[in-house]
Amino acid sequence: MTVVEERTVTVPVRRERPVVRRAVRGLALLGALGVWQVLTAADARVWVRFDRLPGPVEVAREFGRQLGHGPYYADVAQSLVRILTGFGLAAVAGIGLGIALARSRWAQDLLQPLLEVARPIPAIALVPVAILLFPANEQGIVFITFTAAFFPVLVSTRHAVAALPGVWEDAVRTLGGGRWRVLTGVVLPGALPGVFGGLSVGMGVAWICVVSAEMISGDFGVGYRTWQAYTIVDYPGVLVGMITIGVLGRATSGLVELAGRRLLAGRLG
């Protein structure tokens, strides 16, 4: 026992100050950029070849140029519209069907086989189907995005609802609550933490798929522009596209997490 106590006493002494830690993290990032710059500037060929890869300075200059031009923003807006439409539809359908699957035997028997057959197919493999099915490219891309985000939301909602303790529902019913009250007052709020887990995953997968779909069949959008830059040998443009995709992905998942924290405030630590 005493040994354990001694250890717990020594731990705070070794704690680093947050300022120092932050500085170290910043330096690590800058260091990586520096290595990248050196390797590309020297056109290094050490099995991996840096002679054609643009360096960070070149990328930054191109980024600056694009930020001053309209098409960049049009592409960003186009991708955002696609992802938000697909993801929004997936959230609504995934949560709704997830609850239905967890609570209704009819829904289970009708939908489960269908969903189990469709689930293992990666959304991006549906591109040919999307092209055949939808009259416009736009709808196809939204469909792919929807499918990608739908399954994580569906599965996590179903599990979260199925795992709800029965006592909450019993309590609300014995206080006079009907089906609707149980649904809105117990099932939805009770499943919310699990649902947000699915939404987070769904948003991540949705980005992968929207970008891939744009690369394959888009006319606009960040993914399309990135691939386009590659085909016209505009390598700095490719990296600008990649960084843009990363920033947008981070921002949208951040939004989902923020919404989750807001809604679940009070329940968690």
Partner: peptide, 20 residues
């Protein structure tokens, strides 16, 4: 079926944790 005339008090953890 259940009725607000007959309230049930459970052993534990029957409060909705997201409500004060």
């Amino acid at each position: 079926g259940p009725s607000p005339d007959r309230a049930l008090v459970f052993q534990d953890d029957a409060l909705l944790p997201w409500r004060t």
